[in-house]
Write a protein that binds this DNA or RNA. Structure first.
Lengths: 129, 129
DNA sequence: ACCCAGAATGAAAATGGTTGTCAAAATCCC
DNA sequence: GGGATTTTGACAACCATTTTCATTCTGGGT
């Protein structure tokens, strides 16, 4: 029953960076899988809820997913050209967020941090063009 | 000519927390302003491009805007219940993001940081319920 | 094996924020 | 004033995501 969900998870694991739901769907279809778009969305959502994959929003409002190596809390460094992603831990940031929240009387503090940049190979490619 | 744009900016300034484009539009209309939804979107976009307002995405993909006090780079601490927003500067975070990017060979590093929590009065309200 | 309840699936339609189109209106410039 | 240019806004188009709902699995229980 979690057959479909696993298939989605696998497809995601096979990818390098972040993929949108539509991407995953298209890829599974072109691989010959018989799956509906609805199910992909549901599977992705379930995986995200269970902490199995990470979600973030692109600038144009699309949700993108990625199977993350660790289930621990971490952040991402994403190449804005090729989408290559590095997972980074940031103890400093965690502490900073907590401190900032506490300073203003906020409780149950959570935070989202995403770092974007151009990775080495992409900036090389840009220079070459 | 920037008449409409200023009107949008004023409406935004009059608000406490973050407001969606649709919110701003509704508010201006109920205030008797004659303005189109398209124009509100365009004005907000222009303001955002010019750094006059801050933009962030809610979890459900909606863009929300806020007239920010300073034009400088800063982040936000947002109450997840009432939307009250505090602008916070985080030199530590800036340095951390730069360092993390450089460490992995990334250039042109930018970052987004949002901190969410429950503000003092809201957590009091919750307890009282 | 058979039957049934409940969950999972997916095609198609609905939703809703955002963006594009284009003609009318305002503004500028000479 | 007259024509070029920009701004506006009603409306339609877009498109990712969600809902709907009928159909298909699945796993007992007998």
């Amino acid at each position: 029953m979690t057959n479909r969900r696993d298939a989605v998870h696998d497809t995601l694991r096979r990818s390098e960076g972040f993929r949108s739901a539509q991407d995953v769907y298209a890829e599974m279809r072109s691989d010959g899988a018989k799956i509906g778009l609805t199910t992909v969305y549901r599977a992705l959502q379930a995986l995200a809820d269970g902490g199995k994959v990470d979600v973030l929003r692109t600038d144009d409002g699309e949700s993108v997913y990625r199977a993350c190596a660790s289930g621990d809390h971490h952040h991402h460094l994403v190449c804005r050209r090729c989408g290559r992603t590095v997972e980074v831990a940031g103890p400093d940031v965690e502490r900073w967020a907590e401190a900032v929240g506490a300073e203003h009387g906020f409780t149950d503090v959570t935070h989202t941090v995403e770092v974007f940049g151009t990775c080495a190979s992409c900036s090389a490619a840009v220079r070459a063009s």
